[in-house]
Design a protein around this nucleic acid. Structure first.
Lengths: 182, 182
DNA sequence: ACTACTTATTCAACGGATTGCGCAGCAATA
DNA sequence: TATTGCTGCGCAATCCGTTGAATAAGTAGT
């Protein structure tokens, strides 16, 4: 139940619209928490009802009107309170891994195909994360240390995954050879 | 929506009660998918209504009666169908990481404290996974190759996490020194 | 000219997940 | 003796999340 807190974190430094936040959830924070725009708008509504955020209405021409949200004192208090108490360990729900665990039922080729698809995705992520980390490093990483550390987490995660994928490949290939030669 | 499939995977090799499954979700499969007993009993009910599983009633003395579930033909078909179509990428929701991203608001000491707690948990997991992997290795890992690969995933994951935690520590310590000497 | 994408917000329906509770008896420990 | 813990099942309320759609106007590409 901490979509609200992720939003409050984002609103710490800047005033933003629901749309802006949705974009950030698709990029930066998406690394550690994801949410769709529907969820975000809903949560912003609740946060507003509870006086954690307030907004001002910005009419625009050429584009639809928007609401720019900013965090309130109460919101900041709530965020700090939340930061202080220990976080619940993340619940793991990885469908692809369930497939691996049940892999005895599938044939190796279809596993390998999906493994490659997932690996492509991870490799892509790895490159974007590395590019962002490099950019931060050039600017002196201390300014945005926590963004940098978050990126490092993502990078190490992708690398570990890709390493695992290699292990799977070699294991399945060895197996393939054994079963065809038998 | 694949708690059902995780259950079907478990029922592949053995007949089991809801209670048995709950235990396995707390251990082996819990590595990749977790669920509480309420969810499991509910899902078993649904699976039974859809003829994916069937059960027999086992009266016991000393202990409460139980229901032993086993997978049906239909259930196996459904599982195979699911295994064939690509899995959606897992959505990430890591509250602790949200805290890191919002870390500028907390003080280093409280972050470090929580980091240590999480690290203890990860180290503990790492040891249990490694012990299980070693046991499988002795028995010749090919028999249970997919369990072995799942464990390897868990091991690499914990190692990557712990490595990251070290990076965070050194980064925050360096920072601490800079701010106190200034 | 038509299609597709971007900006911007919101509603409605459904299903999945969490939290809290309740029952029931046995075994072991403090 | 009281409490905790294990085996075993289940219901109900609520909340969270996903999917799908609607509205509305501008811009860019085929």
């Amino acid at each position: 139940m901490s979509l609200r807190h992720a939003i409050l974190v984002l609103l710490q430094d800047q005033e933003a619209s629901g749309y802006d936040l949705a974009r950030e959830f698709a990029n930066s924070i998406g690394l550690v928490w994801n949410a769709t725009h529907q969820q975000i708008y809903l949560e912003l509504g609740k946060l507003n009802d509870q006086n954690m955020v307030k907004f001002r209405h910005i009419p625009q021409d050429g584009k639809p009107d928007k609401k720019l949200y900013r965090i309130t004192e109460e919101g900041r208090d709530e965020l700090i309170r939340w930061l202080r108490k220990p976080a619940a360990p993340p619940r793991i729900r990885d469908a692809f891994m369930v497939k691996i665990a049940g892999g005895a039922l599938s044939d190796s080729s279809s596993i390998l195909r999906e493994l490659d698809d997932q690996a492509d995705l991870r490799r892509e992520r790895l490159h974007t994360f590395e590019a962002l980390a490099r950019k931060l490093d050039e600017q002196g990483r201390d300014k945005d240390l926590f963004t940098y550390l978050t990126l490092r987490r993502g990078i190490l995660d992708q690398q570990a995954w890709l390493h695992w994928a290699d292990e799977v490949k070699t294991a399945l290939n060895k197996r393939e050879i054994l079963s065809t030669s038998a």
